[in-house]
Design a protein around this nucleic acid. Structure first.
Lengths: 338, 338
DNA sequence: GAAGTTCTTGAAAACCTTTTCAGGAAGCGC
DNA sequence: GCGCTTCCTGAAAAGGTTTTCAAGAACTTC
């Protein structure tokens, strides 16, 4: 239905080459014809067909975003960050979700192939090496929050280890000794890093973690269940380090239902620093992760790779610092409960 | 880099027409050649170039999703629903956000043009008529949560009016009379519908709403500020109907900070029924909106429009029912405070 | 075995754009 | 005024696919 370059050419009484030249400013065109073309294009509302363009240029302007899923505040924040920068760079986002397993991941990548110029991938359940092997080698990929090892690829990770360590040390400084941790999903690398950070801080302080690690996950339901288990443990822990903020919200719910007062009887920490965390009851001590910013950086890096043909910069492997935010859900261990 | 149909043809020693026929099953091909082609395609990992395909078919398989923004649980839930169904129908999603004003909206639509076969639009700040006028008439569009009037288009709306009415009646039945409402954004149609539902219920019960309507918005911050205003009002309202769940969370925070006990001293309601609402302190009375399901239906409807060329079904204009969910944040007005 | 069908196959057009190539017009210097 | 350069412009190719058209091969049937 809509106008092609031929329509514009006919309308202006010139050849399609001339139209193309005027519209792209590729080479000089007589002022008279230039005007004619511009008028015709305006009148017909001509917009170049993206399919023809990408057939020719091998560029689509699209960026594929491959995520394990898209539910919850973390992902909406990430998507927001990605989208903001993509829009400012004239790119568009194709999203593809629910890929924690290699075969699903492969399928998603295949569906995106040739439709996008590059990929932003978050695959904590895979790792960079495995994920890379499933992507065509000439497709630029930037990884977020994915285990990288020694692989040469652009990777932006949160400091999961350091963040968990900081939280644990905060609790230790408050006099807590029996600090329970709620583990995230088995397969999630970021979750394991957090447990590792917790263990490291505990070990440094000379405390054992035996019997203090609880099965969990990244949802509120997981936190609720885990907190119930923790409450049944004797001697009862005096603090809970949850797998993430959502998990902590669930734990807070469980504690409220059990009549346990936070932070007087039990301290609770999250991880992520979601907007929700400051509106929790009580406001949650957590680690602030620059989710939106990592979205910005991932897109900028990817677009640079896609556009800069010659820039053979080495891969950018970065661990982004996180910030401890102390709020009302943690407090010094009460003397009576030693 | 990757193989084209010509490569497959050369490898198999046949013409590209034959390859196309084998791969699409368009017309019969000698078994011997068929096998050769299949082998060659497999070996080369041949996948048809989507740009060439869409240049030819005028179909991309893409669905554009135009949203005012993408932050928060509501949108991640909606996106999840859209994505689930899109994937099951072999479509992919291109998202485009932050378009509450006509010019931005137009720009977003233009960027999506020709890249997608149809659009799912949520534009409560515009209306169906205005939004439709900014989209090329031969692009199928399905609207979500957008004021429709008499316009002939596919629209799926939540029952904002009915939901707010139900919440208000619930509060009235609990003996509340001074029920404050926190208005959503000025320009948002859904927010205004909710206020309308509130007014309708109040009027039916014979109560005035004078001095009970407060400026607000859809964020937690808006709810916090509005609740502070409400607390300064005399005589003080005994219940708050927030613009949505997030707004209610903010109000709960403000009340907690002010030392007001919920629900004993103040009842609070939200709107949306986010997962968070059941983990609030106290769990939030709200209206459950089938966000994910509306995502499913929007995609199914759109894909049907896109694929079924002949089906001249009339536009599907539907108001999706919502469900009152009573939880701990509302209670009967305490006798002492009449 | 010849005439007429039916199968099977390849060439070429179409989709829309950019870009190279080459030709014609206009301008320059002598 | 002639030859040479420079500027402007159109024709055509390329990019990857499906589909129509036509032709050649194989098969019927008498």
């Amino acid at each position: 239905m809509s106008a092609t370059i031929h329509d514009v050419a006919r309308q202006a009484g010139v050849s399609i080459s001339t139209v193309s030249r005027v519209l792209n400013g590729t080479s000089p065109v007589k002022e008279e014809k230039r005007k004619l073309v511009l008028e015709a294009a305006e009148m017909l509302g001509y917009v170049p067909n993206p399919a023809a363009l990408s057939l020719l240029n091998k560029r689509t302007g699209g960026i594929g975003v491959v995520l394990p899923f898209v539910t919850g505040e973390f992902f909406s924040e990430l998507l927001s960050g990605l989208d903001e920068t993509a829009q400012s760079l004239e790119s568009f986002l194709i999203i593809s979700t629910s890929h924690s397993r290699p075969t699903e991941f492969r399928k998603a990548v295949l569906a995106l192939d040739k439709r996008v110029d590059g990929l932003v991938v978050m695959a904590p359940a895979l790792d960079v090496e495995e994920a890379s092997s499933l992507v065509s080698p000439d497709t630029p990929v930037v990884f977020i929050n994915t285990h990288a090892g020694e692989v040469g690829a652009d990777v932006f990770n949160f400091d999961n280890f350091g963040g968990a360590r900081a939280l644990t040390r905060h609790l230790l400084e408050d006099g807590h000794e029996r600090i329970a941790v709620v583990r995230g999903p088995e397969t999630a690398w970021d979750a394991q890093e957090r447990v590792r950070g917790y263990r490291s801080a505990m070990r440094d302080a000379g405390f054992s973690t035996d019997g203090l690690e609880f099965e969990g996950g990244f949802t509120r339901g997981d936190g609720y269940t885990a907190a119930e288990s923790i409450l049944r443990t004797t001697p009862r822990p005096t603090a809970i380090l949850a797998a993430n903020d959502y998990c902590a919200f669930g734990a807070l719910s469980a504690l409220r239902d059990a009549g346990i007062e936070v932070p007087r009887e039990m301290s609770v920490c999250g991880f992520d620093g979601l907007t929700s965390s400051q509106y929790a009851a009580p406001p949650l001590t957590t680690v602030q992760v620059p989710i939106r910013e990592i979205g910005h950086r991932a897109i900028r890096q990817l677009v640079a790779r896609v556009r800069g043909d010659e820039n053979e910069q080495p891969p950018n492997h970065e661990t982004v610092p996180v910030e401890l935010v102390v709020r009302g859900s943690t407090a010094a261990r009460t003397a009576s409960r030693g």
